[in-house]
Amino acid sequence: MKDPLLLFWTALIFGSLAWYFLLLFYVGVRGGKEIRRLTRRLGERPPLGGPGAGTSARGEGEARTPGLG
């Protein structure tokens, strides 16, 4: 294992494996919480046609950034 290229690939492959393992738990836990927050936010939106539920002229609601075109 004195070949620097081989050492490089060994570190990269085992590093990737460790990263995948870590992300499984990290993203698994935090992503689950974000899904709960996402569904809560979506559920709390006013009904379509109700107060504050107006849409823009283009119909879907997001204000466009001034200065573009």
């Binding site: 927050r37 936010r41 997001e62």
Partner: peptide, 23 residues
Amino acid sequence: RFVRGVEDFAVAARQMDLNLGIA
């Protein structure tokens, strides 16, 4: 049940957070 328009359907009402985005 949360889909009300094309923006919900196409870009998830722009409500995606960090870890859900990574996944």
